[in-house]
Amino acid sequence: MSEKTYAGVTVNCNDEGYLTDFAQWNKEVGAAIAKEEGIEMTDKHWEVINYLQEQHKNGVPLSIRKVGKSGVVNIKELYKLFPGGPLKKSTKIAGIPKPVSCI
């Protein structure tokens, strides 16, 4: 557990830099995390982020194929928006946990 400051907001992160409290997230924080990951956010990026946050709120496990079927973005586009680990990066920016298994 560590503290980080994004866009003037102090947030709690786990060892891999994922926010541990979604209440600390806002759009500016998301944009600052994206910048750290080398991503400049566009409207399309935010559409994906909103979708992921909505799914997370409903307790739905996330998968690449699920995002691809969401109607928000297809999988090829998703890879272009978040190169090198789309779900890993997009969940980090969204302030939600990365997808995990049970161990």
């Binding site: 786990n14 060892d15 998968s63 690449i64 990365k98 997808p99 995990v100 298994s101 049970c102 161990i103």
Partner: peptide, 16 residues
């Protein structure tokens, strides 16, 4: 695996 490791949770990764 589609996940970022064989073990995805901190304690399990460390131990296993």
């Amino acid at each position: 695996t589609p996940m970022d490791g064989a073990f995805t949770k901190p304690k399990a990764s460390k131990e296993l």
